[in-house]
Amino acid sequence: MAAKSTRSKAGSESKARATVAKTYKLYVGGAFIRSESGRVMAVKSGDTFVANCARASRKDFRDAVKVARGALSSWSGKTAFNRSQILYRAAEMLEDRRAVFVDRLQSHAGFNEAAAEREVSVSVDRLFWYAGWADKFTQVLGGVNPVAMPFFNFTLPEPTGVVAVLASSTSPLAGLISAIAPVLAGGNTCVVLTDHDAPTIPCDFGEVLATSDFPGGVVNLLTGSRSELLPHVASHMDVNAVALFGGSKEERVLLETEAAENVKRVRCFDDPPVADWASSDHQSPYWIESFVEWKTAWHPVGL
């Protein structure tokens, strides 16, 4: 008896608890996956190692486009009201995890506490703002056109399709959300590549999306190198539009040139310093309009 109690006492004293470190993965098709290439990037805050994060390859991008294409009909087929509710739920989920993101923005991305709080608040507010627009922009941007014949003539927006988003490299959360929320509100699906020094933040945001009732594949988050993947994004024939945030002139030229092959919509946006993302300059119903196609229909006036 004595020996037994000694053993158990020694056991509990000698084992300091090991924390379970998180593996940061890509979010594709509603699942958290490693890169097919097996590559990872070491994420550092200053000189301190923080975590390993998956580095997406061109094949990861191709696979993500495939699932985004597959998810398009279920997302664009939902009622606008339902899309709005799901975006709103994403805002709820993010608000709920505020403490985690404030902590990570400080420990992984070098934000001070006030800046981290602001980044999360802007992000939540922006999701909420676009959630509101999701079932209203068609009324504001579309319309009934005057025609000199006995017809009704309507112009209505429809989703462009699969949108590749090359997200902000300054703001890992607010910049990312400002880029994808209008795309999603318009009924598109997207593949997002974030090339930020703290790629763990977008990975964490994947967990918000995963608990927000988005069907798998509607948003796919990749982390990796923009310069490596840009040519493949630009040339992919199954991508219908590209949103580029920041980027050099050479990158924009490459994108426009390659995108011409299948007439992708290309939209280039500024990538302002992180503090500026809070400005209302970076939210607009016209950002939703960037990723819709207009359809005009004639309908005889009933007698």
Binding site: R69, H232, S235, H236, M237, D238, E261
Partner: peptide
């Protein structure tokens, strides 16, 4: 072509 293709073509 070096381009990933789309089913629509």
């Amino acid at each position: 072509t070096g381009r990933y293709q789309s089913g629509v073509y």
